[in-house]
Design a protein around this nucleic acid. Structure first.
Length: 105
DNA sequence: TATTTGACCAAGA
DNA sequence: ATCTTGGCCAAAT
């Protein structure tokens, strides 16, 4: 039998897939949804991005509303988010509170 | 195994 | 408002 991969990264993608289109989340929120405080490790998993572009890692931004980073290029991330109806100003999300998706309940 | 790294966060100056 | 510092944790080297 195949043992389920319970890697930290795998869990991150699972939570990330939970975010609908037109919504965004933060690294801290994903970690919190996992019941962990490893905000940084979440970003690490995205940077490697072993499941790109299957996982909408472009919907993850920083708590401050800044875009953070993107493995394929920050400019690309801005275009994608804007394409989903998210307003972006400069390098930050204009209405983070509006499109913020709370994973932990 | 130990050390370094990083798409972070919060607080302080 | 910006810049710096410390902390935090998993993955990579």
């Amino acid at each position: 039998m195949n043992k389920s991969k319970t890697s930290f990264s795998e869990n991150c993608y699972r939570i990330l897939k939970r975010v609908p289109k037109g919504k965004v989340t933060t690294y801290a929120e994903i970690a919190h949804a996992l019941g962990k405080r490893s905000y940084r490790a979440v970003g690490q998993a995205m940077r490697r991005n072993p499941y790109a572009p299957q996982v909408p890692c472009h919907r993850v931004v920083r708590s401050d509303g800044s875009l953070g980073g993107y493995a394929w290029g920050l400019a690309k991330k801005k275009a994608l988010l804007r394409s989903e109806g998210i307003k972006i100003q400069g390098e930050k999300v204009a209405d983070l509170s509006a499109c913020f998706k709370r994973l932990s309940l």
